[in-house]
Amino acid sequence: MSQTVDRALSILPLLAQGPADLGQVAERLGVHKSTALRLLRTLHEHGLVHRQQDQRYRLGARLFALAQEAVENLDVREIAHPYLVALNERTGHTVHLAVYEEGEVVYIDKVESRYPVRMYSRIGKPVAITVAAVAKLLLADLPEAERRAIAAKLDYPPYTPRSTPNAAAFLKELATVREQGWATDLGGHEESINCVGAPIRGADGRVVAAMSVSAPNVVVTAEELLTLLPQVRSTADAISREYSGEPATKDSA
C-alpha cells in the first residue's frame, strides 16, 4: 500500500473517535499540516469526511452509506458454505445454517450426512422454533422484551417428552443459551435426533445466523455428538470473522 493511501485511511479511525481539527489530524499522522489538509480534501471530495462549521472534520455520510450497502449485500450463506462443507467432511454429520426472518427460523443451507440415514429438513423450510438449537441461538440474542413477546405468542407442541413445554421453560432455556453461547436439541423434536449449534455474529456482535450439526442416535449418541461442540463453535467463529471482515482462514474452521 502506498504511503499516501495508508495515511488517508489512517484518518478514518481517528475521526471515528470524534471530530478533529487539522492540527490534530496532522499530529496523529506525523505529517505537516499541508499534507494532512491535502489528504482531508481528497477524502472530503469523495464524501468520506465532512468539514463542520467549526473547521473540525468528522466522518462523512457517504462512508456510512457505503458501510450500510456493504452490510445489506453480505450473503452469510455464501460465506458460510465452505466452512459448513469442511465441518461435514470432518464429522460426517448433517450441517445446517439458519436465519431468523419475519417471525420464523428458516434453514438457508444444508450439507447432508455421509451416512445412509437422512434428515427430513429442507432449505427454505421453517424449523421447530421451540426446540431447534438454531432457533434457540437466534432468539436468545434478541432483546429481553422481544424474547418475552415471542415466547408468549408461540405454541409449544409436544413433539417428544423432551420438547419445551411452555413459555417459562423456553425463556429459561434462552437465557442459558445466551449466557453459554451454544445450544442443543437432544431429542426435543425427534427422539432419535440430536443437535448441537453455535451462533454466527456480525461486526456489531449481534447474531446474524446460527449453524448446527445433527445426527441420529443410530449413528452417534448424544454424548458423542456433544464432543463435537468445540469444532462447531470454532467453525461458527471462523464464519463470524470472515462475515465481519476480519482475517480468517478456512483451515481454522
Results as ranks from 00 to 15, higher is better:
1 M>L: 14
2 S>M: 11
5 V>Y: 03
6 D>W: 06
8 A>Y: 07
10 S>Y: 01
14 L>F: 03
20 A>Y: 00
21 D>C: 00
23 G>W: 05
24 Q>D: 04
29 L>R: 08
32 H>K: 12
33 K>C: 04
35 T>G: 02
36 A>Y: 04
39 L>Q: 07
40 L>G: 08
44 H>K: 13
45 E>M: 10
49 V>E: 00
52 Q>I: 08
54 D>H: 13
54 D>A: 04
55 Q>K: 15
55 Q>M: 06
59 L>T: 05
65 A>W: 02
66 L>Y: 09
73 N>T: 14
73 N>A: 15
74 L>E: 05
76 V>L: 15
78 E>F: 02
81 H>M: 08
82 P>R: 02
82 P>W: 06
83 Y>Q: 01
84 L>W: 04
84 L>C: 05
85 V>R: 10
86 A>Y: 02
89 E>R: 13
90 R>W: 04
93 H>L: 11
93 H>P: 02
96 H>D: 12
107 Y>R: 07
109 D>Y: 05
111 V>T: 07
112 E>Q: 06
112 E>Y: 07
113 S>E: 00
115 Y>M: 15
115 Y>E: 01
119 M>R: 13
127 V>Y: 00
128 A>K: 11
129 I>L: 12
130 T>V: 13
135 A>R: 05
136 K>S: 00
136 K>A: 11
137 L>A: 04
138 L>H: 09
142 L>I: 10
144 E>A: 11
144 E>Y: 03
146 E>I: 13
154 L>D: 06
154 L>R: 03
155 D>K: 15
158 P>H: 14
159 Y>M: 03
162 R>W: 10
162 R>M: 06
162 R>P: 01
166 N>M: 03
169 A>D: 07
172 K>Q: 07
173 E>W: 00
175 A>N: 15
176 T>G: 12
178 R>Q: 14
180 Q>Y: 01
180 Q>T: 10
180 Q>F: 06
181 G>Y: 05
182 W>Q: 00
183 A>H: 00
188 G>E: 11
189 H>L: 09
189 H>D: 10
192 S>Q: 10
194 N>S: 09
196 V>N: 04
196 V>F: 10
197 G>P: 03
198 A>N: 05
199 P>A: 14
202 G>W: 08
203 A>L: 15
204 D>Q: 06
206 R>I: 08
208 V>Q: 06
221 T>A: 14
223 E>T: 13
224 E>C: 00
227 T>Y: 08
227 T>H: 07
239 I>L: 05
243 Y>W: 13
244 S>T: 11
245 G>S: 11
245 G>C: 04
245 G>I: 10
247 P>K: 13
250 K>Y: 14
252 S>I: 02
